[in-house]
Design a protein around this nucleic acid. Sequence first.
DNA 1: TTGTAGGCGTTATCAT
DNA 2: ATGATAACGCCTACAA
Lengths: 333, 333
Amino acid sequence: MAAVRLRDLAAELGLDISTVSRALRGDRRVRPETRERITRLASSLGYRANLRARALAEGRSRTVWLVLPGLERPVERECAVHAGRWLFDRGYDLLLAPHRDDPRAYARILDRLASGGADGALLIPGDVSPSDAPPGDVAAELPLLESGLPFAYLDRSVPGVRAPVATTDNEAAGRALASAAAGAAARSGAALASAVDAFRSGRNPVEAARSRGWRAGMAGLGVPISGLGGGPGPIAVAASTQEEIEAALRDLGDEGRSGPFVAAAFDRWEPRGGPLFAAFVAIQDFRTMAYAAVELLAEGLASGVALETREVLVPLLELRSVGERGMEAGLNE
Amino acid sequence: MAAVRLRDLAAELGLDISTVSRALRGDRRVRPETRERITRLASSLGYRANLRARALAEGRSRTVWLVLPGLERPVERECAVHAGRWLFDRGYDLLLAPHRDDPRAYARILDRLASGGADGALLIPGDVSPSDAPPGDVAAELPLLESGLPFAYLDRSVPGVRAPVATTDNEAAGRALASAAAGAAARSGAALASAVDAFRSGRNPVEAARSRGWRAGMAGLGVPISGLGGGPGPIAVAASTQEEIEAALRDLGDEGRSGPFVAAAFDRWEPRGGPLFAAFVAIQDFRTMAYAAVELLAEGLASGVALETREVLVPLLELRSVGERGMEAGLNE
DNA sequence: TTGTAGGCGTTATCAT
DNA sequence: ATGATAACGCCTACAA
């Protein structure tokens, strides 16, 4: 019942292991009849190459890990599926390693990677706020860097870690949302009085870039960025998610503001009525982002060495307008 | 820049490889001072054990794969997270291998597993309808079975494949939903006229078990199972998802039925008004299910051999009642 | 076209 | 407590 080895096939056929090995992996310097005998016996005995031995001998395992916090967010799921397909076509298997924001799990995953657990890796970092970052967490990817394993960041990067990144052009997306929001207000006859920046800039580089774009866009249009107060007239509120925008509006409401507004969010917006008169959604192109990350990684997989720092910015898939139906209703309040 | 090996440490210290190996792995028959010298040099040189070599020598990799179709459904995500934690605590890393319902990807994953890619596996099968099953797909897990790798099914099993399963007690859940639905109708003063079975029994064993339970429960209560027609009076409709129930109702509507009804679904129900007067949701216990599967697998991981067929039925986490507010409204239509 | 032999880096079994 | 040596199963120059 023990697994069949090359040695068993060779012994059975009176050949040498190396000949059997060559035949089974398609090396053409094996006489056709010999190859025939070998493949026949191999399949009849159910021979399967031992991947552990092959990985040791070849120095690679044709395996890539995608390290991510969890599976809840669309980025994670979509990138996983697409990157998996791209890599599959290149002969690699993509395995997902979720660390559940558990620092110990995260450390062990990176440690295994650095020890030859895979040929390369894609990393989607979790949120790192200065307060809840465990000591030494900044250096969590240190083993990876030292090992020289090729890896690339996906969606976001970790400041200070030198590695390539594939991410949405979030700054451009922020600017695009700004101009769309201002345009919608203008078309409705009431120019934007001010804009609210509800991005969580300190959270990660993505939020920071979106905030920069939004503020720059509004500045270029002459619309002032207001804090929680703000003057009368229609306002535009931007954040990464609908929930964050709604939370910001509740804060504004407490200070006397509940009038019409324009919403600018990413990826998803469910119309729920209320004083909204227009909503714009920046739809990210996860498919292309995953492709770009795989492209970045591919160089390293071929050469087997770590990659240079580089940033690939993927344009938005679409800037979608939703919920403009309620525009008049919003203005009539 | 090449990776540091045991050999390098041994040479540097004038010791033998075997001593260094023992020291680094906590074997106590090494003189404390020697161990000290070794560990010091190892960490100063950044030594990392080569996992590929270790896996070959030890015959295992302390790695388990979770093979699943995708990451969309709650089962997949929740089981992945929980199983990952349980296995982590046992010293194993859980890696996710989504096959995107691509038969080639699926075959390659199972092939790698059978060739020693991991020490064990958990499988969440996709839907297999007789029509779209590619030829030979039934035997897709054949390599796995032949290899003797320990694995267990999670959530569902594949008929005909001998392996242990951890799944919800779907038949009991179906019965529970039946009695809850009938009870709600009785409490509202209008006994159930008939029940609709909208489960997709041919799709997979889970759907089949739910359907059996629902039918048996209704039979025990003397409520006839109706087809698309059905008589007058309140009816109960059961299916795995809200969408499937709504689809079934649209069909009923075409035949003249749009009156009040009781809904019985799994895991999720969003109240949306309409002629509904009660909804019951069977909430599955994914956490316990994942735990049970890991327990099943653990035996095999310890012994290294395939497991006996066995079925662990996990009770529902909860039978939740939602949307009963609309009961009177529904009856008044 | 086939065989020989060394190597991949660790672990494990003997001696000493 | 340490060292020599043989696995682990496969790959790959190099030789024949």
